[in-house]
């Protein structure tokens, strides 16, 4: 158990609870966070669940795999700490994590 904070591009904050083991995309979709589409349902194949992880949490989310890196490279608004939220599986260590949403999804 823990909480995660989503910050929309217009700075609106959403603090939601999570259970370890599901993806950040799933948490966002389950809580109807605007700005996360998740069109492919978590297959890392559509680029519509882009989030920007805050610097201090980025390393805890692991390293993007080859598939993710490939799709990230096509994302116009990519930053140094961009991830696809379907590829971040939350653990108890991620309690208190903050992620920002880009202005647009691909």
């Amino acid at each position: 158990m823990g909480t995660i904070t989503f910050i929309e591009h217009d700075q609106t904050e959403h603090v939601v609870k999570f259970k370890a083991g599901c993806s950040v995309m799933q948490i966002a979709v389950d809580n109807a966070i605007p700005g996360i589409d998740g069109d492919c349902g978590g297959e890392c194949a559509c680029g519509t669940c882009h989030v920007i992880v805050s610097d201090d949490w980025f390393r805890k989310t692991g390293t993007p795999g080859d598939d993710e890196e490939q799709m990230l490279s096509m994302t116009p608004e990519r930053t140094g700490t961009s991830r696809f939220s379907c590829q971040i599986v939350v653990t108890d260590e991620m309690d208190g994590m903050t992620v920002r949403l880009p202005e647009f999804q691909m």
């Binding site: 998740g38 069109d39 492919c40 194949a45 559509c46 680029g47």
Partner: peptide, 18 residues
Amino acid sequence: ARNHMSFGYGVHRCMGNR
């Protein structure tokens, strides 16, 4: 409905979808 495949998936996903 958003899970449709009309835009394709992966690196060739439709660029003009939006």
